[in-house]
């Protein structure tokens, strides 16, 4: 079942994607088209598989033993599960921001410069530029520009999360995956991240998993509703929230379960 969407230009496409943890199925026949330069939100109750799906896009699931994937996930037309794919390179192009901020125990500067450095940038001037631009894009520059060389652990939770976003941007990805990036943050920090997502859309494709339907409605162009490992409904966010096709979707949206 391919759910029709307004076909502009899909950047990530899955067809018949199944995922198992050992014998337990976690994703069932997922077909989804993620559009370039749009924000796509994945919503659904706990355990519905939305984070699992997100982690398929940059193969972070590879790190989980016993995880098995069938079907296809294509990124710009190439199957990322093909045997000759360089996973390391893939993750450079499809970055990820995690649920809890996970800055490295290094300075703010070194956190952002880490990605470019491991990818071979040695020039100090180039690194300085990347760090500054990344921090600016993550709306953190003004807050940290005077203490770039202090430990990142000293930042507040919301600042740490924006640092993690800056760190991801510094690698120069096309797609940014966000796994409940605000669930560990207070409302003010959340608002800042949401504004940031707004801005990122102009340059990047963002896929965000969120627990908060309000957040999905606020930040996303497209929304996918998942339930028990299946993609129940996918479409423009206004449509999903105002006139969903499926009863399950409308029950979840209106808070009757989940």
């Amino acid at each position: 079942m391919v759910i029709p969407v307004e076909q502009t230009e899909p950047i990530i496409t899955t067809r018949g994607l199944d995922l198992f943890y050992g014998e337990t199925p976690a994703l069932n026949q997922i077909d989804i088209d993620i559009l370039r330069h749009r924000v796509t939100a994945l919503i659904g109750p706990s355990g519905c598989g939305k984070s699992t799906l997100l982690r398929c896009f940059n193969r972070m699931n590879d790190l989980i033993p016993s995880c098995r994937v069938t079907g296809s996930v294509s990124y710009r037309g190439e199957n990322i599960y093909a045997p000759d794919v360089d996973v390391v390179h893939l993750r450079k192009l499809i970055g990820m921001v995690f649920q809890r901020p996970n800055p490295f125990p290094k300075s703010i500067y070194d956190n952002v410069a880490y990605g470019p450095k491991v990818h071979g940038v040695r020039d100090k001037g180039a690194l300085d530029t990347i760090v500054e631009e990344s921090l600016k894009k993550a709306a953190l520059w003004d807050e940290v520009k005077d203490r770039l060389h202090t430990p990142a652990m000293g930042l507040s939770g919301g600042q740490q999360q924006r640092l993690c976003i800056a760190r991801t941007l510094a690698v120069g990805p096309e797609v940014i995956l966000m796994d409940e990036p605000c669930s560990a943050l207070d409302p003010i920090a959340t608002a800042k991240i949401e504004t940031l997502i707004e801005e990122l859309r102009e340059q990047y494709t963002v896929i965000i998993v969120t627990h908060s339907m309000q957040q999905a409605a606020r930040v996303s162009d497209y929304t996918g509703f998942m339930y028990l490992g299946e993609l129940i409904e996918f479409g423009k966010t206004e449509k999903i929230f105002e006139t969903p096709d499926k009863e399950l979707t409308s029950n979840y949206i209106t808070g009757r379960f989940g």
Binding site: M60, F98, N102
Partner: peptide, 26 residues
């Protein structure tokens, strides 16, 4: 913590880069 490993791998660092630069120092 594993979150640091994930964070580094998600930036496209290789296994050894992750170990040498993120895991070993602390």
């Amino acid at each position: 913590p594993d979150s640091l490993r994930e964070g580094s791998l998600a930036l496209g660092a290789t296994r050894w880069q992750t170990i040498a630069r993120v895991i070993l120092p602390p």
